[in-house]
Design a protein around this nucleic acid. Structure first.
Lengths: 191, 191
DNA sequence: GTCTATACCTGGATAGAC
DNA sequence: GTCTATCCAGGTATAGAC
């Protein structure tokens, strides 16, 4: 990773490994080896494993906010923007089939570990939830925007979990189409 | 646990702890302490941690099969039986809000660990999937029974994941109602 | 800033007495 | 069947040289 500080490289590598192997199953040695530094040097940048986790969550929050802003620009209508969200199931389908949803699996793991950072990780979910809710409101669904946002979030989580379990592209495609139709119906009702 | 052998107690305790704390995060010491035996004694019953995991998965398979058979008896119509499945989200809602779905979270964890038992754990999903598919066929949906089964499985997984993240009973109730209506509509179409 | 060396602990696993 | 004692690997964390 050229032009990146060691700290940045550590966080980005940890981000990826936490996703691929899980938080607990990823050791300092794993991260240090991939970054290409010694374990000792590691502690110069991050004192504890919790500190790395916090940095990873912060990075994910920043990246997610940037993605949502991008969708704001990409989509002409609220319906288009929500469709951007639905389409990540296709865009990231290879990774999702291998590792599940980065947000869902992290929150699930931290919940089981009873980890202090669980509340922070949950803010990733809230970010999507609030953004989707905003879009549904803009779509003319002021009344049930919150419920629609949660429903869509749940549907995509379920698709990610089963895609991971069954490695079935056809299933993902079918569910994305169904979600797209569901969205269009909600928009039509509002108009 | 009166009238149970030590081995049975170990497996049942491991079953619960793997659900509550996750597989990797549960140590032999944790299980031994709860059962009330020494760590050394533990190895008299199970040689490796993998062996315990296999025993736990086998137990879950047996318990799941028994539950599905019970639903066959409880429900008069295929629609009633599928509704039994939907209702576990309500029946187990306290545990689901705390620990997520036992099947989904185990499969997700084993996928990240790249664990050999992943395929076995996935049979739990297949059990539900095949049973649901059978019920949808009996409902008169021979054509799309498989897709409907996967769809319902995904929906319930998503609800479990978000219930765990947000601890929101109202959300669970709303999604269960929506699923119930969805099911009724599929049955009506077939009739 | 980066390294080596090392302390310390936890967890999986074994041996052998009772 | 159950125990204690023990080994060993791996993981977190620290100290200190360069």
């Amino acid at each position: 990773m050229p032009g990146k500080t060691t700290s940045e490289q550590i966080v980005e590598t940890a981000d990826r490994l936490f996703y691929e192997k899980g938080y607990e199953h990823t050791s300092f040695a794993d991260i240090a080896a991939e970054v290409g530094i010694s374990r000792g040097n590691f502690y110069h940048h991050f004192k504890t494993k919790d500190a790395i986790l916090n940095a990873v969550i912060d990075l994910r929050l920043i990246n997610t906010r940037a993605m949502l802003e991008q969708w704001e620009q990409d989509g002409q209508t609220p319906e288009d923007r929500i469709r951007c969200f639905i389409r990540i199931l296709i865009t990231n389908q290879t990774k999702i089939m291998e590792y599940g949803c980065p947000v869902g699996t992290l929150v699930s793991e931290l919940a089981k570990l009873n980890h202090a950072a669980l509340a922070d990780a949950n803010r990733l979910f809230t970010l999507f939830r609030d953004w989707l809710s905003l879009q549904f409101k803009a779509l003319g669904r002021e009344e049930d925007a919150e419920e629609l946002a949660m429903h869509l979030l749940a549907r995509s989580q379920g698709v990610a979990t089963l895609a991971n379990a069954f490695h079935d592209e056809t299933f993902i495609r079918a569910e994305v189409d169904a979600l797209s139709m569901w969205l269009h119906e909600r928009a039509r009702e509002a108009a």
